[in-house]
Amino acid sequence: MIPPSFEYVRPGSVEEAVSALASSGDDAKVMAGGQSLIPLLRLRLSYPEVVVDVGRIEALRGVRDEGDHLVIGAMTTHDEVLRDPLVRTHCGLIAEATETVADPAVRHRGTFGGALAHADPAGDLPAVALALDAGFVIEGPGGRRTVPASEFFLDYLQTVLGPDELLVEVRVPKLGAGWGYRYEKFHRVAQSWAIVGVAAVVQRSNGSIASARIGLTNMGATPLRASATEQALAGADLGSIGDAAGHAADGTSPASDLNGAADYRQHLARVLTGRAVTAAARA
């Protein structure tokens, strides 16, 4: 199918991008890699008047080390992220989850920041960002602000990003020694989106679990933390993972759709949390 007409702007800097967005108002759409936006345009599910292509802004690209954090530029492609030595060393969960995003050709174009800002609850990276306590650096006409992952996602495909704001980079705390991680994605065929995904990071201490953070993919309109399981795991021994995972779906109200009814999703969340935490604790 054929996209509708739109005006095209390709700013060379973040400032230009922000001012382009500010002058276009609600009728503008930010395009990063375009891997979600272009299919939506082709299906005529979106009719933006202006497309602001931020994919060429060099300042938004790349991964840098800032001591206890990695900073990942929003326009770093999935492929660059999953091959990046800093990411693999310090934020292996991101590499592991990114490898499950779409397929190699899409990963060559799609971006880390684009996937997060799109905020599809079936996307893999929002739950990962949540589990890692990432910080989202946002630039708008009034300057920069940093929003924690726990506050970034508001609803289905909705974030705190204002119409004149741009996600510029994501600050991810490094996982130190003693931390393990795992992303468990459950989907029917290789190409399909996660029915449920579980991102777990676990800190071990003397053979037991000191603390754990767990992000859930597609268990609601936004990515969620499995808080009850996290609490049950704090200070627990490995033998109690199963019981703790039994609380993974507490408080969730996932959608019922073609890919799974709500009760099945809740069941999967419990099973996959058990598997993810077990793997992370043994890693």
């Binding site: 095209y8 891997q35 272009i38 299919p39 492929d79 050709a105 899409v106 060559h108 174009r109």
Partner: peptide, 9 residues
Amino acid sequence: KSVKSCSVL
């Protein structure tokens, strides 16, 4: 690098 040319402008 491989890309899907139907999803690139």
